[in-house]
Design a protein around this nucleic acid. Sequence first.
DNA 1: CATGAATGAGTCTTCATTCAT
DNA 2: CATGAATGAAGACTCATTCAT
Lengths: 223, 223, 223, 223
Amino acid sequence: MTRVNKTDHAVPRRSMRRLREKENRCNTILKAAETLFARKGYHQTSIEEIADLAEVSTGSVYFYFKNKEELLIKLMQEIGHDLRKSMGEEFQKTEFSFDGFRMISFAFLGDFCLRYPEKIAIFFRESVGQSVEVEEQRKQVFVKLTLDIKDAIIKISERQGKHFVTNLSPELIAVCIVGIYERIACYYLLWQDRSADVMQMAQESASFMLGGLNNLFIEDAPH
Amino acid sequence: MTRVNKTDHAVPRRSMRRLREKENRCNTILKAAETLFARKGYHQTSIEEIADLAEVSTGSVYFYFKNKEELLIKLMQEIGHDLRKSMGEEFQKTEFSFDGFRMISFAFLGDFCLRYPEKIAIFFRESVGQSVEVEEQRKQVFVKLTLDIKDAIIKISERQGKHFVTNLSPELIAVCIVGIYERIACYYLLWQDRSADVMQMAQESASFMLGGLNNLFIEDAPH
Amino acid sequence: MTRVNKTDHAVPRRSMRRLREKENRCNTILKAAETLFARKGYHQTSIEEIADLAEVSTGSVYFYFKNKEELLIKLMQEIGHDLRKSMGEEFQKTEFSFDGFRMISFAFLGDFCLRYPEKIAIFFRESVGQSVEVEEQRKQVFVKLTLDIKDAIIKISERQGKHFVTNLSPELIAVCIVGIYERIACYYLLWQDRSADVMQMAQESASFMLGGLNNLFIEDAPH
Amino acid sequence: MTRVNKTDHAVPRRSMRRLREKENRCNTILKAAETLFARKGYHQTSIEEIADLAEVSTGSVYFYFKNKEELLIKLMQEIGHDLRKSMGEEFQKTEFSFDGFRMISFAFLGDFCLRYPEKIAIFFRESVGQSVEVEEQRKQVFVKLTLDIKDAIIKISERQGKHFVTNLSPELIAVCIVGIYERIACYYLLWQDRSADVMQMAQESASFMLGGLNNLFIEDAPH
DNA sequence: CATGAATGAGTCTTCATTCAT
DNA sequence: CATGAATGAAGACTCATTCAT
């Protein structure tokens, strides 16, 4: 029905498109998928809807992506990559001082989350619990992200001449930090619209992390 | 719920037995759903499979539950309820001292997660990103859980005569705590099998939280 | 289009059906598939068409049959079974004399082919070259059919006190006979309508086979 | 065909080379199609796969062939042509004596089938039951093949001064012979690998045919 | 002539849900 | 209350074919 009208007068979707962009179909499709997955949910979004929004045929979606799952996985990986890059840069800029935590809090909450709420929805909601394959890829993305943070934590501790109570600590702290960001983003941005308070939260969550971190350092024996 | 009311108005003679039987069926079905959702994923599990495992007909599933979604929601709510109850008890037992954090860490990670890995899978994975309705219910469950923790935090701080840097802090801390538990459970129990280290993690995550909490108290000005 | 009208006024296909027959849906579906496969070809027939002709929903087709392939396989096996049964009876009736060949020729060409041209189309045309699985099943059906004939040939030769030139001969003769019937059926009934000459052909093809058979007996040394 | 004509009208200077190149391409594609159709089946083979194996683009396939069907038809016709040519030569060589049957058996089973098993798969399996058009062409190819054999049979009988029991006989015998070869090839070469016994089968099948043929000659009345 | 990206109609298949028994 | 056969809407995915470059 919708379908029929679409091709009725042979209004080629192509013409308009080709004028605007002759490449980057791939990105257009991904962007459309991101928008719809975030808006309607992964399962509630059909390939046809994605194709329509991207001004492309369903066949084209399958030309660029193996299947629907791959769209979700690609989006997730891309977001994971961006987050890692952004975090890495912040840690670099602050030369692996404690201040890095404050910076990544602002970068993530104050910048990324506010600018790309759909990416947050994809990363923390739509990519969860969809299929074995998606979950496996999600795990890998999150493990990489966590290990990045763990490495940064180790570097920071070394620069401060501190040691952790156990070998587990650095990774555990990284896991905690990821969990904190995740839940703050979901709770305050996806579930409620508290974007006005985001800066405050960035500030306080950084304090929280630093306090937590400090508590897992071994007390240096006084002279 | 709708269905349950049907029989509510009439509590006749042999009702007791009937009620127990009904509750049993209901629970058998829920248990089957929990097992399968956790093992194969919500979408990959069909009503027929649930009915088979519960040894009832598909029609019976629909007698006790409005639809598949309701199964998931009920499971989620049940788990949320159990967690809140358990946490509440721990805070009570420790009389809202700082030690409560250590206790809930052990209760959650050392006890709940190890005993009911399927519930963890349902609560933190399968109930995420499935539909608008599930997400709405999930939000409510999580908000309740978070507010419980927030209340406990406020009580604890009051008992210690401490004040928070902002009004946001108590809730934010609660959100962080939920996030920490969530991610630790996923990372170390669903994604990897690090059950051997769980006690250590409970210990350290409690320290982490306490450190974080402390950092969001206002420094009492020394007189 | 066709679709829309079908359900527009909610004219339940069920009502009419239930009145006529409350069982044997399975056979109705198979019969519909047979008719359509023979008329339009296996690939050119959609499940929906089969369901329509059987006055059943598409879902019902999948309730009784795993997939489209299974419909074809079942049809093929059924036909194979019928043919073997019919042949077996003819050989029995003629007490494994040479006359059996004449009888099966009449039974197959004069009876079966004329009565069930669609079965011939399924057995010798539509079930060929469709997929690996169909081909495998087809092979098994044909091998059984061939071995039945081989056994009959051996019995006949024994009764006549004859021996074959080689061990291969009985099976080879059976293979030839199957080939002869197959091609006659295709050539004279599917490709041309020579049903008028069928009896003549049955007669002559039996003679041909007998001549062939005789030529593969060892010449008994004259005393 | 349509396409070929395009260049037919203009046979200019460097045409020779072009023609050879074109023919090469054409054959390369046909060869690729033959290989894949035989290996994976007609429907399971996509144009893209054929193009890949032939190291051309999908567009090129459509330059040389109207559609996928035409590829199959061309292959089938080619094989039919080769078989007729080969048979004709054998009959010629044996001067239309009874020995011709032995010769074509060896030529077909001992030579053609062993050398070109893919052609056998195409001719007797993949080209069956695919579409109305393919079936129509298949019929024509087989009818030609059959009539060739019929003609040879008539010639042979004339040379021997024999007469057939009815007018139908020569064609019927031809049909039988085709069926015999077809089924032997499928049964012993496509379904089982009995290539070791092929010579024996050629020998015996020829005997079978001769016996059959003889049985359809009218008994010459002794003076 | 060659290319290969783009098309989109066409189909199979699934499965939550219903309801007559 | 229980059953499970029946439904049919919905969607993913394929692939022969086209055509601008």
